[in-house]
Nucleic acid binder design. Sequence first.
DNA 1: ATTGAATATTTAGATGACCAAAAAATAGAG
DNA 2: CTCTATTTTTTGGTCATCTAAATATTCAAT
Lengths: 153, 153
Amino acid sequence: MTKKDYSSLYLEKQLCFPLYAASRLTTKIYEPLLNALDITYPQYLVLMVLWQEEELTVNEIGSRLFLESNTLTPLLKRLEQKGLVTRQRAAEDERKVLISLTKEGNALKRRAVNIPEQLIANFNDESITEKEILQFQTTLKKLVGLLSDSMKK
Amino acid sequence: MTKKDYSSLYLEKQLCFPLYAASRLTTKIYEPLLNALDITYPQYLVLMVLWQEEELTVNEIGSRLFLESNTLTPLLKRLEQKGLVTRQRAAEDERKVLISLTKEGNALKRRAVNIPEQLIANFNDESITEKEILQFQTTLKKLVGLLSDSMKK
DNA sequence: ATTGAATATTTAGATGACCAAAAAATAGAG
DNA sequence: CTCTATTTTTTGGTCATCTAAATATTCAAT
């Protein structure tokens, strides 16, 4: 009786677990900076989309973040309550809900603009080179593209 | 009046957003396979830890997955309800709760062992080479190590 | 015009992740 | 030995994510 090889099930061998861990840990790193703006990380993502495009429907925001409208609806309501966005049915097609930045939502952009550099400042670590990070980012984006394509099927 | 540069806030420039997207998308890819075993992705992670170590305290599981006990407690209760693990106070230190696999929990390992290869089979894509994935995995692990170190401070 | 399919959003219910605080047990200092 | 501090887990509350189902609007075909 030979023992079966279960090494494929080791956490260290998998890609998915470190992705899951890295995602949660990076979100945590953002937290103190986002607390200062009184927003959460997913809310920050939605705002980043809107800072680029001003007015979008719920689904349009979702397609950029790979989120469905049922996740976004309550999140957007919270952003509306904070006075950062408005939600109104589109006149030309009342199925759609247009999300727009308020003046306050737009103003928050100026307070957020320093966040990326503040994070990078925490990471002047010699063990990972700039070049390695860029390569990593390239593969990561490819991976996201592949995964999202394979979801559509 | 010159316009401020907000390009640092573009989603594409950041590392955190694609990590977040990749994590969620990979979890989704696992879903149909895990549904067949009647477990969720975080439950699968806990089981993978236990398949390697048989019996651990709540905190010991948490340290491997970067999760706190307040996240694990309800999750472990659900695994207990499914009959996959047992939870009992340690005799030598009754503050600790020992989590052990049941016979069923151990048996599930045999049904899970094919999951990794089934996933890889979906990904015979030419746009990413094996070598690139290995490099990616290396950097990802380094990143997780850095992030978790920086949390401890 | 009316019916039926497709599209867009919302709601409901379950799980999970996080913080803060409480509860329970142990360890340590005097 | 007792009191306080520490460790470990649980509880309660909020937000986020997912599936499935409900609602409302638009479009297409007859």
